[in-house]
């Protein structure tokens, strides 16, 4: 830790590029939001609509992290922050995915044939 990494902006980052980054983020977010609404309003089959919304949502999250929260693979602090976010996401994915894997398996074996059998099978998580 030869220089303070307290989240200060790099001095070479001038204000103009900062503003540009925020502006791009804002426009992209706006487009993605409009896109999601368009997917609902258009006559798409519901599966496709849901897929479109999910993709738009993911892209929206990435835009926010990148343009507003300054996470990126370049530069000391933002890289560290990004790695931290990715690490958290992967651990949460392990926990959530593992829970889904285990509980759906158990749900299938515990409730099948019982009165709540079909409901439990359709919603394996709880």
């Amino acid at each position: 830790m030869t220089k303070p990494n307290t989240g200060e902006l790099d001095p070479q980052d001038n204000a103009a590029s900062e503003v540009r980054s925020y502006a791009i983020g804002f426009i992209v977010s706006l487009l993605l939001t409009v896109g999601a609404f368009a997917a609902v309003l258009a006559d798409l089959p519901s599966t496709w609509a849901i897929i479109c919304i999910c993709i738009a949502a993911l892209l929206q999250i990435i835009t926010h992290l990148r343009n507003f929260l300054h996470l990126s693979f370049s530069g000391g602090q933002s890289r560290e922050d990004l790695l931290l976010v990715l690490f958290s996401v992967s651990l949460l994915a392990i926990m959530a995915g593992g829970t889904w894997y285990i509980m759906s398996d158990l749900g299938g074996r515990m409730h099948d044939g019982g009165e709540a059998g079909h409901a439990a099978h359709a919603m394996p998580d709880r």
């Binding site: 593992g98 829970t99 285990i102 509980m103 158990l106 749900g107 515990m110 709540a116 709880r126």
Partner: peptide, 14 residues
């Protein structure tokens, strides 16, 4: 009432 005690074991050991 829709509870599942196995989820306790699951979260606890997580």
């Amino acid at each position: 009432s829709g509870g599942n005690m196995m989820n306790y074991a699951n979260i606890f050991w997580m």
